[in-house]
Design a protein around this nucleic acid. Structure first.
Length: 457
RNA sequence: GGCGGCAUGGCCAAGUGGUAAGGCAGGAGCCUGCAAAGCUCUUACCCCCAGUUCGAAUCUGGGUGCCGCCUCCA
């Protein structure tokens, strides 16, 4: 498998540190607000990588942290008169719910920053001892000048960074580029050798990844906006503390844009996942995202989502057969093409083309086509479960149809039987009226040789 | 200003040297009582200019346009 390493800016052959085992760490959310489409893109992308690595037979340990100590959480807590825990727990649960709804796999490990404070203090202490950090009045800063590789991930010459760095009025740092490992905080802080305080954002990931996955991890991924300064700073901290390479493959996903602008909290131009799910299902959002290569920007529009929804309909309408678990799909051309595409830096667009070819083959009764399709599609996180309609909803629809037709029907089967009589009598007017009525409440009737079936739109 | 990326049919999007995957939308036909779904057929010379080459969307140089990072951000 070849992956694009953002550190070297090159496609590289993927080789884990330990054969057949992969450690991957993805920067998770800061839980203080709704997750939006941009988050969906990120976590769906790395979910697909996770699923694919496992599909290839790797034993994968996937960690995705939760940042539950952060300025924004504290501010929200203060504003709402709640504890930071109440705020972060609330939004964490909302996040999990959204991810589940998107069929994003749960990671193997989901460390919380607040549960890893000890490790953060240990690293910070270690960095001070080694001369890579210094304390000023209860704050601790990383001494960027001591790390010559600084700027290598973001390809920023250090002097360019320096001249561009924002200099605060009352800066107490040795160098404007130095970043906080620990911040003094009397109100919400944790005890530490430097007094009450809380960790800087960057140290959180260094600490959590080291605690759960060791000094060197195979893959570290996240949104491209984390490259600088977050990931750059993680490298500095971890490599200075551990004395070895931090990450072998850095992978970054592109943004979701809207009106050609990056979708983000700060710009306020975001659509929440929950809102989108009211209109589009999880397969649709996934197809929308996976149609594009993960490193490219994806422009949001209702037109694109509608197009994806229609594509998903084609996928869902495929002629289904029993899944044959004894059939070895690895011998098939489609499997080989799929793996070739995915091995090429996750070319999901090409992989999808293979899936759609399989749809066509299944519809033409090619043996095993649906089995292959089903298995490959699940690697991309698509599900073939049809949306379930609740009993109450169905009863209400049946009642509505009854009203429209001025009849009393107990069930869809009733309606279909009634319509069958009409059709047998070639009473097309009645038959068509029934179909119009069901259509109006979102139920499609399909006439085949085997009889009539119904499904929700 | 520094760094990085992108430009392919009506829309979205693969393809990185040999004459353009796939999805959506559109058109024609088959199927159907009529539909829906499905099946078949159908629409491109790849932003512009110059160059390298037997041959370029694909490489080189120069334009033009768009985006991102450089500050919290997936």
């Amino acid at each position: 498998m070849r992956v694009y390493n953002s550190y070297t800016n090159e496609l590289e052959e993927f080789k884990p540190v330990v054969e057949n085992k992969v450690s991957m760490y993805v920067c998770g959310p800061t839980v203080y607000d709704y997750a939006h489409l941009g988050h969906a893109r990120c976590y769906i992308t790395w979910d697909v990588l996770y699923r694919y690595l496992k599909f290839k037979g790797y034993e994968v340990t996937y960690a995705r942290n939760v940042t539950d100590v952060d300025d924004k959480i504290l501010k929200k807590a203060d504003d709402e008169g709640k504890t930071p825990e109440e705020v972060s727990q609330y939004w964490y649960k909302a996040f999990v719910k959204s991810m589940d709804a998107l069929n994003v796999s749960r990671p193997d490990l989901e460390p919380f920053a607040t549960k890893t404070i000890g490790e953060m203090i240990a690293i910070t202490k270690d960095l001070i001892n080694k001369g890579f950090a210094y304390e000023v009045n209860g704050d601790v800063y990383f001494r960027v000048k001591k790390f010559p590789k600084y700027g290598q991930l973001s390809k920023q010459p250090i002097d360019a960074l320096e001249s561009g760095a924002r200099v605060e009025a009352s800066d107490i740092k040795e160098n404007p580029l130095d970043f906080a490992l620990w911040k003094k905080d009397e109100k919400h802080g944790y005890p530490s050798p430097w007094g009450k305080g809380r960790p800087g954002w960057h140290i959180e990931c260094s600490a959590m990844s080291r605690k759960y996955m060791g000094d060197t991890i195979d893959i570290h991924a996240g949104g491209a906006d984390l490259i600088f300064p977050h990931h750059e700073n993680e490298i500095a901290q971890s490599e200075c503390a551990n004395g070895c390479q931090f990450v072998n493959y850095w992978m970054h996903n592109g943004f979701v844009t809207i009106n050609k602008e990056k979708m983000s909290k700060s710009l306020g131009n975001f659509l929440t996942i929950d809102n989108l799910l009211e209109k589009y299902d999880s397969n649709t959002i996934r197809l929308f995202i996976l149609t594009n290569h993960y490193r490219m920007p994806v422009e949001f529009s209702d037109e694109s989502l509608t197009s994806a929804a229609n594509g998903v309909a084609r996928l869902m309408n495929v002629k289904r057969t029993e899944i044959d678990d004894n059939f070895d799909i690895t011998k098939t051309d489609e499997y080989k093409q799929f793996v070739e595409a995915m091995d090429d830096d996750m070319n999901t667009s090409k992989a999808l083309a293979i899936l759609f070819d399989l749809v066509n083959k299944a519809n033409k009764n090619e043996p095993h086509a649906f089995t292959i399709l089903f298995k490959l599609a699940s690697v991309l996180g698509f599900t073939f479960e049809k949306a379930q309609i609740s009993k109450e909803e169905l009863a209400s629809k049946v009642a509505q149809i009854s009203d429209k037709l001025g009849e009393k029907f107990a069930s869809m089967e009733d309606i279909i039987a009634y319509r069958k009589d009409a059709r047998d009598a070639k009473n097309w007017d009645v038959a068509d009226k029934i179909r119009v009525a069901t259509d109006e409440v979102g139920i499609v009737l399909k006439d085949t040789k085997e009889g009539t079936s119904w499904e929700t739109k």
